[in-house]
């Protein structure tokens, strides 16, 4: 039913994340934007949620929806939050713009029993083709910035992410690729055909 929500048609990764979250759980959404996901989860799944967001206009939108949100920069860390306060810690398409992605992932796995992360796969074939044949940094629908003005300072591939999780002691429980048009191939060769990917991870 949630596919009717506009946020889910624009962001298939959010649709996957929403499906993975169990009813009545406690959730923190890092970089929660206008609070749409938390709003949906609260109404549809009885979730108790809160968010962290950097931008004032987004905070105002969250409060409008009744979503509890704290104005903060994720680079300041989560040190004040106790271990396993949440059932899920969510980070959707934000990993690529934080200062230290590895530290944040570890912190998320500390405060959340499970971590749900989605990011844009830089190993996607269209990105590879642009670099291969044009010799230029890829500019795609999901990566619309130029190399000199992109806020995405830590772009990586699905394989890169798997290696990172392994090296910092995080276990991947689930990996779900998103590419509606190439659904089957993106499941077989995610690193090449998944536009975005959702991982469920936890501490080893």
């Amino acid at each position: 039913m949630h596919n009717n929500y506009q946020i889910f048609t624009e962001r298939p990764d959010l649709s996957i994340i929403a499906e993975l979250i169990e009813k009545n759980s406690k959730v923190i959404d890092l970089g929660c934007g206008d609070g749409s996901l938390l709003d949906y989860l609260t109404k549809a799944k009885g979730v108790t949620g809160s968010g962290i967001e950097l931008y004032q206009d987004m905070i105002i939108e969250c409060v409008k929806k009744g979503v509890s949100v704290v104005h903060d920069n994720l680079n300041n860390g989560l040190s004040e939050i106790k271990d396993k306060t949440f059932d899920y810690a969510i980070l959707s398409q934000t990993l690529q713009s934080v200062d230290k992605a590895d530290d944040l992932l570890k912190e998320m796995a500390r405060v959340g029993k499970k971590v749900l992360v989605s990011f844009i796969n830089f190993g996607f074939y269209k990105a590879r083709l642009q670099l291969m044949f044009c010799g230029k940094m890829p500019v795609t629908k999901s990566l619309p910035y130029q190399w000199y003005n992109t806020p995405n300072i830590h772009l990586g591939t699905i394989n890169d992410f798997r290696t990172l999780c392994d090296s910092i002691g995080l276990k991947i429980i689930k990996q779900i690729s998103a590419n509606k048009k190439l659904k089957t191939v993106s499941e077989y060769w995610p690193n090449l055909f998944a536009i975005t990917c959702v991982f469920m991870i936890e501490e080893k």
Partner: peptide
């Protein structure tokens, strides 16, 4: 937040 209380904060 350490006490896991419901808080909205805006600077």
């Amino acid at each position: 937040r350490t006490n896991n209380k419901d808080v909205v904060y805006c600077n």
